[in-house]
Design a protein around this nucleic acid. Structure first.
Lengths: 334, 334
DNA sequence: TCACACATTGCAACCGGTTGCAAAAAATGG
DNA sequence: CCATTTTTTGCAACCGGTTGCAATGTGTGA
């Protein structure tokens, strides 16, 4: 059915090695044989089998792409950039969806069975034991959006979540808010924990304490909305720092549903700066997470590691910044 | 570095075939040898190489997943369901991003080189020549969201876009709208073309003609917003049928920006019923596209085809339905 | 023209599994 | 207990490439 090396070799009147070499980067073939081979390959519609090549070279050019949050819009950008970045460099993403996987161990086995050259884990809601397991298996692994975690040999690319928490605290206090609550993403996410820590600490330094702290059950509009409804039923707050724009939009709609005006009655500060944050129905002031930088850097790093597996472990943190829109009171004139 | 069959065989004191057979579904091994082998494998941390197996069996269990629209939120659901569905059946998705690919031919080569067992193409913005090329190469291919296209041997799973166009026309006219415009997705999408046709035809049957027809440059909020601004500058309309919820939300915000009230001054009918359509800031009346059914069915079909490549070509169309929210006037009491 | 260096080529072993086939072992029945 | 059937096992060839090595071919300078 499919055309193989051998048939091309026969047709071109050369050895199998010659054919192999014309299809191998940087191998030694004369212009003449190359022409003959290419002609024969063309005529036969030959496509080298990457499977066979992988077996022989022990390189698959496959990168495992592991995620467990397929419903958050930021992952659109994540997937887009990952796949493009990998494609551009001649690698292919093998997608793993951990959303419903009870046993991440199984995914590890699967990825090992496919002999992926490297792995990118894009989530902050997995315990470090997961990336570490891959590392122990000797596979290059990048933990994007991960928690800085010294000494495990896992490369981390992301942001400094603690600093972001501090930034949020400063931003809200600067604008005169005092009665401030935090509505985080899932409590188990390391990003949530770190932001919380930075936020509370910085608030403390400014002599304040959060009025309320709670966590949405996941990164969704409805989770944000629900959590906010509960919060409003119990307490009164002047401003809210949310762990994610989606959650924040849900929270905004809950507040509006109670007749509150934004930002007069209540201020909102989101996180991520996803596309929708700019929609005029929300026009959300938010902290921009440099997804693009994170992804591009992760791809670059994983490819580099494939070339040099002993490359020493590295942590790359990118800066976040406030994107000013209309859900917070402006800075008072000083 | 990695443990192979041979080492397990030696350790277990059996032949390589015996090891292979214990890891092969439905092969003949006695309970005793199986135990020995499993023990040895466990001790050595053996993981069978799917690469080697693929080479020997000529089956990779890899399914190519081709898309070219990574920025539309419906694809979150699409990716989630695809990957889960494939995983559940022991297949793995090899992701191909055609967004920036100028030459789809290259992707075809790549997928053929990886010897994928099947391909799912999830887009309506590719010419039928693309899926057909795969089919010609003898690879099972499912065109999800595709255009019904007889005789090419490509399986199509999706909806009847013409009928949806008719449904939209009926819905708007029923509610008393007469001055109706269409704001479609990209003109090149077959789904857009079919909906347009159904819409205009049905309107014609009802004695009407669309006030305006235009197309957003892509499936995005901003494209919808821009197109709507242009439309409003030129014409006055009572209701708009949009080719996508995102586009529709952009259009709504453009209308609101001009001071129009929804649905009093202008009605909106979206398409897809994506999550965000239910957000209270929009609360969009829209046509539900049964993404879930389409994906699950596509996965099922592609897996079936891998098992039986000569299975005859099939088209599966699912029904769409109106989801009533608040961007259209209610049906007049009859 | 010849000796030499260097580029190109083919041979054959290897990558890590699967599988048809025949031999060996176990189970069955008389 | 033996002949027969059925199950289990190992051998060896194969899947489609790559690559070290030795042999061949080509080009250079003297």
């Amino acid at each position: 059915m499919t055309v193989t090396l051998k048939e091309v070799a026969t047709r071109a009147g050369v050895s199998r090695s010659a054919v192999s070499r014309t299809f191998t980067e940087g191998a030694s073939v004369s212009a003449k044989t190359r022409r003959k081979v290419e002609l024969a390959a063309e005529e036969l519609g030959y496509q080298p089998s990457l499977i066979a090549r992988s077996l022989a070279t022990n390189r698959t050019k496959l990168i495992g792409l592991v995620a467990n949050n397929f419903r958050n819009p930021v992952f659109l950008e994540v997937f887009d950039l990952f796949t493009q970045g990998l494609q551009k460099r001649g690698f292919r993403p093998l997608l793993v969806n951990l959303s419903t996987e009870t046993d991440p161990e199984k995914s590890l086995h699967m990825l090992r069975q496919y002999r992926v050259d490297g792995i990118i884990i894009a989530t902050s809601t997995l315990p470090p034991s997961f990336p570490n397991a891959f590392r122990k298996a000797g596979v290059p692994v990048i933990h994007a959006f991960g928690k800085v975690d010294a000494g495990s040999g896992v490369h981390v690319v992301g942001i400094d979540n603690k600093k972001c928490g501090e930034m949020a605290a400063n931003t809200l206090v600067e604008r005169g808010y005092r009665n401030i609550a935090l509505l985080g993403g899932p409590r188990s996410a390391t990003s949530t924990q770190d932001r919380l820590e930075g936020f509370v600490t910085q608030l403390g330094k400014l002599g304040l304490e959060p009025t309320d702290i709670r966590f949405a059950r996941n990164y969704s509009y409805s989770a944000g909305r629900e959590a906010m409804s509960e919060l409003l039923a119990e307490k009164q707050v002047e401003a809210l720092f949310c762990g994610d724009d989606l959650i924040c939009m849900g929270a905004m709609d809950a507040a509006r549903g109670k007749g509150l005006k934004i930002p007069e009655d209540i201020g909102f500060l989101g996180f991520n700066d996803m596309n929708m944050a700019g929609w005029s129905a929300y026009d959300l002031t938010t902290i921009h997470q440099p997804i693009r930088d994170i992804i591009l850097s992760s791809v670059e790093l994983v490819v580099a590691m494939v070339g040099d597996p002993d490359r020493s472990s590295e942590t790359r943190l990118f800066a976040c910044s406030i994107v000013e829109r209309s859900t917070l009171k402006p800075l008072p004139k000083s």
